[in-house]
Amino acid sequence: MKVLIATEKPFAATAVEGIKAEIEAAGHEIVLLEKYTDKIQLLDAVKNADAMIVRSDKIDSDVLDASDKLKIVVRAGAGYDSIDTEYAKKKGIVIENTPGQNANAVAELVFGLLVFAVRGFYNGKSGTELKGKKLGILAFGNVGRNVARIAAGFGMEVYAYDAYCPKEVIESAGVKPMENQEELFCTCDIVSLHIPATHETKESINYAMVGKMKKGGILVNTARKEVINEPELIKLLAERTDLKFVTDIKPDADSEFAKFEGRYFSTPKKMGAQTSEANTNAGIAAAKQINSFFATGDTRFQVNK
């Protein structure tokens, strides 16, 4: 089988070596397309592929139609909204992700952003501490659970809301479950977002929701850009000069947010999974899943069933 690694934003060299070793040990062939600058390059590379490993690359109907042999695409990472999963399902192409492989990297970034924020973005003036603060985690999946683990070390009070996670699971992690999203925002000094971009969540973090936060509240987004209602959050920040917003996903209205000097920060690009460890973990997990799929038909990580 021919396995294409197609990454506009490439894996680390060590990750590529690990993926190649896994795939070739199973008797499959690796084809590498890195730093491509045109969709035509991707379409040409896909033509003879039986499987693909991608990162945040856009895999639309054109890409999925480019090969009659394509059977599986694995997103090396958790989020897969850049892939047309419904069209893939119609064509019988399995789409998988690698949940949990980037979780610790994203969680650590949350606290990098938070320390930066509570210390006034290192402006030389007196800031505050995280110890004793109430941290709200919106969605208690792999990343949320790692955030809770790290928060305990900072001595924070940790709360969480997840409509799909049993309260018992949240409590077993030493975290206080909230009845709903509104209660989480009302209760906590800091809210960290870990929700996917779905029909229900897109633009759900809006004026009314964030406006429920206490004085001095901090909103952290390392999830997806689409969950933020940018015009409404800009309006709120203009009215509530006590609030801060930090993110590793540059908003569309970055220049408007940038006007809130000392209360807004965005990394130059999405950095949650940008560690050598996460990069390697996700890539090798993707390779192993492809090998299992071809060996036994294993689809336990399929997201388009």
Rank of each mutant, 00 (worst) to 15 (best):
M1E: 10
V3M: 08
A6M: 10
P10Q: 10
P10D: 07
A12M: 15
V16I: 14
V16E: 15
E17D: 12
E22D: 12
E24Y: 09
E24A: 06
A25F: 10
A26K: 12
G27C: 08
V31S: 14
L32F: 13
L32G: 14
L32K: 15
K35E: 14
D38M: 14
Q41W: 11
I53P: 03
V54W: 15
R55M: 08
S56N: 13
D65M: 13
A66T: 10
D68F: 14
K69G: 11
K71A: 09
V74Y: 04
R75K: 10
G77V: 03
G77L: 04
G77I: 04
D81T: 05
T85F: 02
Y87S: 06
I93V: 03
N97R: 00
P99Y: 01
P99K: 00
N102R: 01
A103T: 01
A107P: 00
V110D: 00
L113S: 00
L114D: 00
V115Q: 04
A117T: 00
V118M: 03
R119V: 01
G120N: 01
G120H: 01
Y122F: 09
N123G: 03
S126P: 05
T128S: 05
G132D: 02
L135F: 04
I137E: 01
G141A: 01
R145L: 01
V147K: 02
A148L: 03
R149L: 11
M156I: 08
D162H: 04
A163R: 11
Y164A: 12
Y164N: 14
P166F: 09
V169M: 12
I170D: 05
P177H: 07
M178P: 05
N180A: 05
E182L: 10
E182M: 09
E182P: 09
F185R: 07
C188A: 07
L193Y: 02
P196L: 05
A197L: 12
A197E: 06
H199N: 15
E200L: 15
N206M: 08
K214L: 12
K215D: 15
L219M: 09
V220R: 06
A223R: 05
K235V: 12
L236G: 06
T241N: 13
K250G: 05
D252F: 11
F257G: 04
F257T: 02
E261S: 08
R263A: 03
R263Q: 04
G272D: 02
T275Q: 05
A278Y: 02
T280D: 10
N281R: 12
N281C: 11
A282E: 06
S292F: 15
F294I: 11
F301I: 11
Q302V: 15
V303T: 09
